[in-house]
Design a protein around this nucleic acid. Structure first.
Lengths: 335, 335
DNA sequence: TCTCCAAGAGAAAACGTTTTCTGACCGAAA
DNA sequence: TTTCGGTCAGAAAACGTTTTCTCTTGGAGA
């Protein structure tokens, strides 16, 4: 009968006793060390199977100094973008035998640093997604979080790879596209004020305005979800714009829904564009013109960067800049 | 200057040396044990702050026999239902200071048991979401995973709380509703063959058919995503049904998109219903009639069940059955 | 036969905590 | 003055592994 340790679980000691060998030998056998006599190894394996021995990962982690786990900190798990990054990250990490621990800051930026630190200590590395904290704070804590990979944020701290989507370029491409269709009055339905990706979009729009002084671009306050778009119908109509650049696909969908309720036809009366190309964008009516970001791939790439850091490989060109790709669909048309 | 241990991190030993006390005393101070002289405690705290000491959770876990982490096993992280459960679970667990470790089986049911076992060993408890494994296998491994909470699956093994959504009831309600509108030919666009929740829906439909022998219900093969619905247009039209019960909202949306492309008007020509009431259901055109499941709440409840198990509280009425609630919207109308 | 070397297994240290046990010290009661 | 009891800090064990070090054994070469 299996003797149980204090915790009630079978430990390496139980196997050792059963097989009549030492702890060390059991450990060697379990780790495929070939300096063990085949007969003894077989005996140990038999004992392990019989006792249903499963190594305790916590003890293992302590001895090896690694957890085979990485952490991801996101501002909001409900956001499809972060969900996609998480998915890509988890898939890629799983292929290398790593697990993912979640930390959601629920958009409370003051908690982010503590949360990240705690997560980091339990893991071998960390992915920090679009942190809301200030540049100064990020730069200060970044070194203590190493190995660390940033997504949609950069920092001056050294040795921190950064994967960023070129939102500025994407929104500029969308604006150029609308102008090409003959639109002369555009409106930008902005995202959350503090958001770095919103800042990048604004920069892109500034560049656009510099090239097209004749085009009128109205800035409208916004947010990042359905309701934002749905609630922005009045201000959009009041702006007189015929081409609307929504912060993202969710906002665009909310807006289209609201416009539909008012009897405004998209794209005949107003063209609407989103951003992200979430899966649903293909299935709205009308289907949504947007800028596609290979977002799950971003998660996969984040893992590869992190893996290189964990393994201390120095690999070429850490970090990277992702170019969004225009998806022209039915929600946009001639002015 | 902070002396560094072999791993390069500051440990309790460094603080002890700095403050001129023993490990034990530092540990006591860090854990708010009041049997320590206030002067010494202050000295220890000062040393800890100066060295930026942060306790190593792995060492802590080993000593305490707990990780303050729970695991969740899902068949597919890309599925909005599981995302919502994860979100609810994570939020509720975070409020109690617990973290969530993800394990995605990618629908490979043969891997589920191993995955669950590995996840469990790193955590204090496990939530198993809609496992695809057989009843026999589930019953066999369930005891070894304790504390364990099941979602959308039950098992004969003792002491395992189970939170299930009454999909059968939901699909029956939807069917009754369509019949009430005058539909006499229905079609059910089924989900994945092995899925337990699909099984429950089928049971519900059987009950419905028993009550309405005059109604014709066609069964169509399906799946659980957009493309399934989109690709099912032909078979749906061929069935001659005027009321379509889609496996879930995603399938319904795909179907509506496909019907729209064919010029079939929903709900004038055909009524379509979904299941789940995902956030997007409110924003499709036409808005989607569906059965709402408080799915994120399910995640929260799963945490509370698990917490009770971890704390060894015996609480009343473990487990529970969730009744879907009809959301009548614009995708359904008179036959 | 003696020495040397290699192979292989056990003892013990290490990882970083918590906690029990032990012992020193001090004040109060006898 | 002695003893008892209580307080508080340090020593050491415990958690479950891995790994280094040490020791034994057997075989080969001189």
């Amino acid at each position: 009968m299996a003797r149980k340790s204090a915790t009630g679980r079978i430990g390496i000691a139980d196997v050792a006793v059963k097989a009549g060998v030492s702890h060390a030998t059991v450990s060697r056998v379990m780790n495929g060390n070939f300096t063990v006599d085949p007969d003894i190894a077989a005996r140990v394996r038999a004992a392990a199977v019989e006792l249903k021995y499963q190594p305790n990962p916590v003890g293992r982690s302590l001895a090896l100094g690694k957890t085979d786990t990485i952490g991801i900190v996101v501002p909001d798990l409900a956001n499809p973008t972060f969900q996609a990054i998480l998915r890509g990250l988890n898939r890629a990490a799983a292929e290398d035998g790593y697990r993912v621990l979640i930390a959601d800051s629920f958009e409370v930026s003051s908690e982010e640093a503590i949360l990240a630190g705690e997560a980091r200590r339990r893991c071998d590395g960390l992915v920090l997604c679009a942190p809301r904290m200030s540049d100064a704070e990020l730069e200060e804590i970044a070194p203590s979080l190493h190995p660390l990979v940033l997504i949609n944020r950069t920092t001056a701290a050294a040795g921190i790879p950064s994967l960023v989507v070129d939102y500025g370029r994407g929104v500029r491409d969308l604006a150029e596209y609308l102008v090409g269709l003959g639109h002369r009055r555009l409106a930008f339905l902005a995202g959350p004020a503090g958001s770095a990706s919103n800042g990048l979009r604004l920069e892109g729009l500034e560049a656009f305005k510099a090239r097209h002084p004749q085009v009128d671009v109205t800035m409208l306050d916004g947010g990042s979800d359905f309701d934002t778009g749905h609630g922005a119908v009045d201000s959009v109509l009041a702006s007189g714009a015929t081409g609307i650049l929504a912060f993202n696909d969710l906002v665009a969908m909310g807006l289209m829904s609201g416009l539909h309720e008012r009897g405004v036809d998209v794209p005949r009366d107003i063209s609407v564009t989103g951003f992200d190309d979430i899966p649903f964008a293909r299935y709205t009516t009308p289907t949504l013109t947007t800028a596609a970001v290979p977002i799950a791939e971003l998660g996969g790439q984040a893992w590869r960067e992190l893996r290189a850091l964990i393994r201390k490989e120095d690999h070429d060109a850490p970090g990277g800049r992702y170019q969004p790709c225009l998806k022209i669909r039915a929600s946009s048309g001639p002015a």
